[in-house]
């Protein structure tokens, strides 16, 4: 029972609002020493989470941004053979010492660090399908061997591993089994108000209400190609504030639509809707039962 007190290690930070379920998932992953896999719509703050966990726990962070060409080995270490060959050819550098040609990757650096780190493996689904399987053992045991030298790199303190995925590819079962999973659901209007408050404090409540009604209404349109996300909402409010608009001007027209909709077809569809004199919602009750509980 004594462990309960240590459970809530991470409770969010000033600049990052978290839902209770996310707090619990993060702390569960920390307590079990398992990687935390975060999925969710783009723009829901998956990557930011790692930064704020690192800030909240006071641990340094190391990020590994995955690209389509990323290989598992790169995260551990890279043996720069070409450099060594070149040095051997021209008699430069310390060719005798193979270790000076072995450069640790993000995972390698975190494992060999003295202090406990937060390791962010960002957008793991961008890589090859087999990629997650290739780092499975290393993540499990938190150690690996540098093949060229036989050196063991073993984590003194198991890092807090946070992995994000945009769901572009299915992740292998064996990999999933080892993770604590959390899906960041799109924030509810109430949570969204808190999030907006962090970025735009002291926003007029009436304006905020109008902004959010329009925003959730837009997101609710079924034929939208690309739904606007939280980060787009924040940008949009910035634009609105700079232009000094009041809530009255929002009722019939959505200004600066370019900051919300990033798809031509969507912008055209909305313009068409406005031209036909379509009625935009003015109140939460216009949005249907989902927002009126």
């Amino acid at each position: 029972m004594s462990e309960k007190k240590d459970f809530y290690q991470f409770t969010g930070t000033k600049g990052y609002i978290v839902s209770r379920s996310l707090v619990e998932a993060v702390n569960c992953a920390i307590a079990l020493e398992r990687p935390l896999l975060i999925k969710g719509e783009p723009g829901t703050g998956k990557t930011l989470l790692a930064e704020h966990v690192s800030e909240g726990l006071g641990m340094p962070m190391e990020s590994w941004h995955i690209k389509s060409t990323s290989k598992a080995m790169e995260g551990l270490y890279v043996y720069d053979t070409l450099q060594r060959l070149n040095d051997a050819r021209f008699g430069e550098g310390n060719v005798e010492d193979i270790r000076s040609y072995i450069k640790l990757g993000p995972m390698g650096r975190v494992f060999s660090a003295e202090k406990r780190h937060v390791l962010l493996i960002d957008e793991i689904d961008k890589a090859d399908l087999e990629f997650p399987n290739d780092i499975l053992r290393e993540l499990d045991e938190m150690q690996f061997t540098v093949m060229e030298t036989g050196d063991e790199v073993k984590a003194k303190e198991r890092p807090v591993v946070i992995i994000t995925s945009n769901n572009e590819k299915e992740l292998p079962d064996a990999f999933l089994r080892r993770c604590v999973f959390h899906f960041i659901d799109f924030p509810t209007p109430d949570l969204m108000k808190e999030i907006v408050d962090v970025h735009h404090p002291n926003l007029d409540t009436q304006l905020l209400d109008q902004v959010l009604i329009k925003f959730y209404w837009l997101r609710g349109q079924p034929d939208l190609r690309k739904k606007p996300s939280t980060s787009e909402l924040i940008d949009w409010i910035s634009a609105l504030r700079r232009s000094g608009l009041s809530d009255g001007q929002l009722s019939e027209h959505i200004p600066f639509i370019g900051s919300l909709l990033k798809n031509e077809a969507d912008t055209a569809a909305l313009a068409d809707f406005e031209e036909r004199g379509g009625k935009m919602p003015e109140d939460w009750s216009d949005l249907g039962p989902r927002y009126n509980q």
Partner: peptide, 15 residues
């Protein structure tokens, strides 16, 4: 209930 202090956590508006 034992250790969870609502004041210690910034819990969002959900739930």
């Amino acid at each position: 209930h034992s250790g969870e202090h609502p004041t210690g956590i910034r819990v969002g508006g959900e739930s």
